[in-house]
Amino acid sequence: MPEIQIPAFRVASRAALGSKTALRSAGISIAALPEGHVIHVLGEAGGPDLAPLLREVTGGRPHAVRTAGPAQWFLVGDEALSAAGVAAILAALPPGAAGVDQSHGRVRIRIEGPMVERVLAKGTAADLAPAAFPVGHSTTTLTGHIAAHLTRVAEDAFELMVLRTFAESLWDDLATMSGEYVLQAADRA
């Protein structure tokens, strides 16, 4: 029986958007956020709003707790957590809530600028007007053909959180959607 040859192939982790250069212009900017942590929290159907308790778990950082449908939340942060760090968060969850570590499964993109609503409106039918979508509001919606979790983190800034394998495709879509505003900025320069 021939000996099995294992090729000298070193497995290395690669950032999902490591090959993308941040896009910056006066009208719109797109940047990949650090691949920190994302923990999906599921509460009991019809149960109480756990967001206030979850904000205590995340230490009150802004936009760390994001709603993700009825009785579901994402706990989000920029710092990568060790297994012990994730376990500590899961242990601190309120009674009746279950948590799943999604840190390696979801990638975040920040898009900001005065044109941000116009850019996103090309991809989603969710109402992005500040009255309907205030700072801190989150929802899951189609962006083009990709379902992404959308959060307004400032007056003119949103974060999109997307399944890792869709991240590059979503980035390319956002770059295309932003194209006219980037070109206008270049024309004026």
């Binding site: 449908g69 009825p70 039918a125 969710a126 929802t139 899951t140 919606t141 189609l142």
Partner: peptide, 14 residues
């Protein structure tokens, strides 16, 4: 347009 009780009005593509 479908008035989702959780998400608001959304297109049928969703």
């Amino acid at each position: 347009l479908i008035p989702c009780p959780h998400c608001g009005r959304r297109p049928k593509e969703e």
